[in-house]
Design a protein around this nucleic acid. Structure first.
Length: 592
RNA sequence: GCGCCCGUAGCUCAGCUGGAUAGAGCAGCGGACUUCUAAUCCGCAGGUCACAGGUUCGAAUCCUGUCGGGCGUACCA
């Protein structure tokens, strides 16, 4: 058959799960396009293909013999029950649940979260943080060398605001009592003074008065920022004093979200390099002066990428370029992934294009590196507008987490008798896992490219496609093991050593087995489009097939091989669901 | 103006490198707890996939156009 070797992967892509079990487990659609090119009838081609497959011992070891093509030329296959059982047994005995580490791992840098210090974290940060963390965990689990870096905004105008506020309206007592809160207050106050709309200002007498007393506040704030950047001793000292306070505040939220970074190299870290970036780009002819500023003019771009303002200050494009070069030089990654909202897509397009053609020290590395902007949509309120409080402020991230946990706690408190035995500490841990899990899961289960409507009522429904549904399924597995006094480790060793101990009879056992063995394929799909929702969709399916299984088929009361089979399936499903949720950064309580 | 993204069930969304009757959840209706956690399960009902063309054996998916929405578009990040 004249098919070029490099076409094979594409053809194999045309094997997928069937839409309906009556067509078998998998279907291949490759006969139709291939037949067209070879100018033969699709069904004839499919017939030949089937004959060869049926003759191949490798094929028949795993699949039932194929009877013939269906419809225009579909080739439908069904996995042999004994082969499926062997797969379950093998996964049971494997710490990685049957997922082989990648043969060719890459070094991948992930850039996500990146809050501005000194500004309270708000809903706007949740998507980048949660999606980035999940992708980092998934890529790492697959076997890649992952480097996570939190590119903190620690050098921008917001510090000018805080410095100005510090000098004009600080309250020392408040700062002594709670520095974070006072700095937060100063930031919010000065931001209003500087760029609030008239109606917003009217609603805040303190800010209004301050604005009236300092009509030049906006300019003065920029001046404070500029002084900091120029190395002014007083501002620099204050910056050094404020930074740990701000970092601590952010760290507390990350701890609650179970998020850790390998590095936190903020904008300030790259600040000494910025001058060189501009000189370099000018020298290479990529950047030139225009209207007093310096920008990179790219073909097909209406506007330049500005790297230095007319007043001499650098911009975030400058920092981004410096950062890319630094990472290329020091980490030599194959890929850098930026998990940043979709509004910055043009910015990244320009930054990436500039970096690729930039002839700096790391030029070779830069040219070979894959730079990816992983964009996501805006978080909206239930009114379909950007998520704000009733007063019109952005919603603080911490308050959001509190509310999620609080609502979850109310639900944990009521209902099922099994929960009545839990002590206070357990309930609290469950509420935290369910509440935070719900918030993370709601975000991750949405296709990241679209805007998403934030609704506690929906995410804490605790039915349907929510974190709690999966957590509950795991708790049920734990319940079986606990109630039955099962030594799970021994069970795993037993079935791994003797796969014939597993025998799939009931269609629900079969469906569960087919589903639970898909983890590796699903993670591969997640990586190909950087979409965690592929993982959540599968977890939901898996938990669903487990719930049906659990509901209809007794496990502990079964006997002999049937009992072993069901125990093995339950154990494997529990572990797999737990692993999947952990890859999303979601905690899984043993009991709930 | 130009560029990017998006219009799928009453609501919130999957599905988008073309595949068989378009899927979930919620809401609605009807069933299932003396039996391993009912935060569950089983069933019913509900859609001209914005619209119009085109490519194809086959289109929610690819191409073109129209309408509607969001975002971005020179010195914020």
């Amino acid at each position: 058959m004249p098919v070029a070797a490099d076409e094979v992967p594409g053809l194999l892509e045309q094997v997928r799960e069937t839409a309906d079990p009556k067509f078998g487990d998998y279907t291949a659609t490759l006969a139709m396009p291939l037949a067209k090119r070879l100018r033969v009838k699709p069904r004839d081609l499919a017939e030949k293909l089937i004959a060869r497959l049926n003759d191949s011992p490798d094929f028949t070891a795993v699949f039932e013999p194929i009877e013939g093509p269906v419809g225009p030329g579909f080739v439908n296959v069904r996995v042999r029950d004994d082969a499926l059982a062997r797969g379950v047994a093998a996964a049971c005995g494997d710490a990685r649940l049957g997922v082989l580490p990648l043969a060719q791992p890459e070094t991948i840098v992930l850039d996500y979260s990146s809050p501005n210090v000194a500004k309270p974290m708000h809903v706007g940060h949740i998507r980048s943080t949660v999606i980035g963390d999940a992708l980092a965990r998934i890529l790492r689990f697959r076997g890649h060398r992952v480097i996570t870096d939190n590119h903190l905004g620690d050098w921008g105008t917001q510090f000018g605001m805080i410095l100005w506020g510090w000098k004009h309206c600080r309250e020392d007592a408040a700062y002594a009592a709670d520095p974070t809160a006072e700095l937060g207050r100063l930031y919010r106050l000065v931001r209003k003074v500087v760029d609030a709309k008239p109606e917003e200002l009217a609603a805040d007498p303190v800010a209004k008065e301050l604005a009236a007393a300092h009509p030049e506040a906006g300019r003065e704030v920029l001046l404070e920022t500029a002084k900091l950047h120029e190395g002014d001793a007083e501002n620099r000292k204050l910056w050094e004093e404020f930074m740990p306070v701000c970092r601590q505040e952010i760290e507390r939220i990350y701890q609650r979200l179970d998020i850790e970074f390998d590095h936190t190299l903020g904008e300030s870290f790259f600040q000494p390099l910025l001058h060189g970036v501009v000189e370099d780009l000018q020298a290479s002819g990529l950047a030139r002066e225009s209207r007093g500023a310096i920008g990179v003019f790219l073909d097909g771009q209406e506007t330049p990428l500005l790297i230095r303002k007319a007043d001499g200050a650098f911009l975030y494009a400058t920092t981004d370029l410096a950062t890319i070069a630094w990472r290329a030089e020091h980490w030599r990654p194959d890929r850098i992934l930026y998990i940043v909202d979709h509004r910055q897509s043009q910015h990244f397009q320009q930054v990436f294009a500039t970096a690729r053609s930039w002839g700096c020290r790391a030029a070779k590395q830069l040219a070979a590196m894959e730079l990816v902007h992983i964009a996501f949509g805006t978080v909206l309120g239930e009114d379909g507008k950007p998520f704000k409080t009733r007063a019109g402020d952005t919603v603080g991230l911490e308050a959001l987490l509190d509310e999620g946990v609080e609502r979850a706690a109310a639900i944990v408190g009521e209902g099922e008798h099994a929960r009545q035995g839990m002590d206070e500490a357990q309930r609290k841990a469950v509420a935290e896992a369910v509440g935070i899990g719900a918030i993370k899961y709601a975000d991750l289960s949405q296709n990241r490219t679209t805007d998403y409507v934030f609704s506690f009522d929906k995410m804490l429904e605790l039915k349907g496609n929510t974190a709690a549904y999966m957590q509950y399924a795991v708790a049920r597995v734990e319940g079986i093991a606990g109630r039955g006094g099962i030594d799970r480790e021994a069970l795993r060793q037993q079935v791994a050593a003797d796969p014939t101990a597993v025998e799939l009879v009931d269609p629900r056992e079969r469906r569960l087995a087919l589903n639970v063995l898909r983890l590796a394929a699903v993670l591969e799909d997640v990586e190909s489009d950087y979409r965690p929702n592929v993982l959540t969709a599968w977890l939901f399916e898996l938990a669903g097939s487990f719930s049906s299984f659990y509901d209809a088929l007794p496990v502990l009361k079964a006997e002999g091989r049937q009992r072993t089979t069901r125990l093995a399936l339950a154990d494997l499903t529990g572990r797999t669901l737990r692993q999947g949720l952990e890859l999303l950064g979601i905690r899984v309580p043993k009991q709930m």
